[in-house]
């Protein structure tokens, strides 16, 4: 068992899609998750959606964390669709940063499991990601057992 409660450790992608570059938050969250024993794939900002999908596939990521501080959250639903189309619908998605209250429902509906605004306590973020990763892992393991038989 590892520090994050999963073996092998939860694998989390921390990235930014769209146009904005403010990455102070994504760096800090990446460091938090690492210190909590997770394996964090970290990218610089401005990833295209197809690039994120390819990355999620190749790295066998459990959770995708999208940081958005300047309206890039508006294309998160598009990312969620793209993941589903690639057969990666089971992968967890969380969003961190600035999302106006009235725009949260659309994200949650698109499959985002939580939105962490500024000031979210570190432990809340870690606990949520760990639980989400564990759930995703269960789905993956079930799939694997099916194939193995």
């Amino acid at each position: 068992m590892t520090a994050c409660g999963l073996n092998p450790p939860a694998r989390v992608l921390v990235t930014k899609i769209g146009l904005d570059g403010h990455d102070r938050g994504s760096r800090i969250v990446a460091a938090y998750l690492r210190d909590a024993g997770m394996e964090v794939i970290y990218t610089p900002p401005w990833q295209s959606i197809p690039a994120v999908v390819k990355l999620v596939l190749e790295e066998d990521v459990d959770v995708v964390g999208i940081s958005s501080l300047a309206t890039d959250h508006l294309i998160v639903p598009k990312l969620a669709d793209a993941l589903r189309e690639a057969g990666l619908g089971h992968v967890g998605i969380i969003v961190g940063g600035i999302v106006p209250d009235d725009e949260c429902p659309a994200l949650l509906q698109a499959g985002v499991s939580a939105i962490f605004g500024p000031g979210s306590p570190r432990d809340d973020i870690i606990a949520h990601v760990a639980a989400l990763a564990a759930k995703v892992r269960d789905v993956k393991n079930a799939e694997f057992r099916e194939i193995a038989q």
Partner: peptide
């Protein structure tokens, strides 16, 4: 804690797609 930040692949960005 066994965690890691894996950032090498971003330097192979030419092949990201």
């Amino acid at each position: 804690g066994g965690g890691a930040i894996l950032g090498d692949r971003v330097r192979m960005r030419r092949h990201a797609l």
